[in-house]
């Protein structure tokens, strides 16, 4: 018997085939849907979007309506979340704020991480003058007083879409992560699987996309989920100083900022927007954890599953003397 045939036979007993094939994309989707918490987070985010956009239609109050009978009253059947000092409906305000903040956070957070990943990995992988130039750029951006810059820039953007504002927020928040990504890239670059890809003729951008970045996925995902929260809160800070979302439009950040002083006296002004914000951040974290586990073949959940599978195959191959006898013959 040739070595090959023997090997094949043994392998068949050692590992039972599992159904399904396909590349990484489908595998990750499959693994993600197996993760309960991640799936739950995803559903919460979808529900929040639905509530934020459809919720205001459930009540007849409009954003600009003022209820002259109710100034600063608590939650009631007429005003579910109560009213503000000026008689605006808190429910409508919160939902409107959630619309803005969801979009700002979910675009801004990943965008921040994406810029960091791009700059950091390119600098680390390319090395040489490109690396030096990019590191210098990162350092310059780090010492730049971003608030001041935003303040100076903001008149230029007045009247333009507020989405541009999200890009600006991201542009001032990526540097530290970029430095971490760069140093991780430097260590991954000398790993054999990266060398192997290089010697196979795989191009540098593909190596970065397929080998370098996925292998720091945990870091990037955690960074992105944190960035979501940071962006949402960062926006409120700027709005407070009069940039970004301006009245009569609102965001969760501005609502929280306004309600802060009334936490003890008129808690509904603070509680509802803050509650929604926490919900958003929690849901994003769950999704992040789920994604991380789906991407990482060694994640605890996936491992337990693999072990279970292994045990099954062991059991299957228990009546394995048939194969053994075959080999003997």
């Amino acid at each position: 018997m040739s070595a090959l045939d023997a090997a094949k036979e043994i392998d068949e007993t050692a590992l039972a085939p599992i159904v399904g094939g396909g590349g990484r994309g489908r595998l990750i989707a499959r693994r993600f849907t197996r993760n309960r918490l991640g799936l739950f987070g995803l559903i919460v985010i979808v529900l929040l979007f639905l509530a934020a956009y459809l919720g205001p239609y459930l009540t007849h109050w409009q954003l600009t309506d003022i209820d002259f009978d109710n100034f600063q009253t608590g939650p009631s059947s007429a005003h579910w979340f109560g009213t503000t000092q000026t008689g605006q409906d808190m429910f409508v305000l919160t939902m409107r704020g959630a619309q803005k903040s969801l979009v700002i956070g979910l675009i801004g957070g990943p965008l921040t991480t994406a810029i960091a990943a791009l700059v950091g990995s390119v600098a680390g992988y390319a090395g040489g003058w490109l690396d030096r130039a990019l590191v210098w750029f990162i350092d310059v951006m780090l010492v730049m007083p971003s608030f001041l810059l935003l303040a100076i820039l903001s008149p230029t953007f007045k009247g333009k879409t507020w989405l541009l504002f999200v890009v600006l927020l991201a542009a001032f928040a990526w540097m530290i992560t970029a430095r971490i990504v760069r140093s991780l890239t430097l260590s991954l670059k000398s790993r054999e699987f990266v060398l192997a890809a290089k010697y196979m003729g795989v191009s540098a951008p593909r190596i970065i996309l397929r080998h370098i970045l996925p292998n720091m996925a945990s870091l990037l995902i955690i960074d992105a989920t944190i960035s979501v929260a940071v962006t949402i809160l960062g926006e409120s800070g700027l709005s407070y100083f009069g940039f970004g979302i301006q009245p009569p439009d609102v965001s969760l950040g501005t609502l929280i900022g306004n309600g802060q002083d009334a936490v003890n006296t008129y808690p509904w002004l603070f509680m509802f927007p803050a509650g929604i914000l926490i919900l958003i951040i929690l849901a994003v974290n769950f999704v992040g954890d789920g994604l991380r586990d789906a991407l990482d073949p060694n994640a605890a959940g996936a491992k337990a599953k693999a072990k279970r599978k292994q045990r099954q195959t062991d059991e299957e191959s228990l009546p394995g003397d048939t194969t053994v006898v075959e080999i003997a013959q």
Binding site: G21, G23, R191, F193, R210, P214, N215, L295, D296, P297
Partner: peptide, 11 residues
Amino acid sequence: AALDPRLPVFD
């Protein structure tokens, strides 16, 4: 070390 831990064998 030579096989990317994040990729299935097919990839």
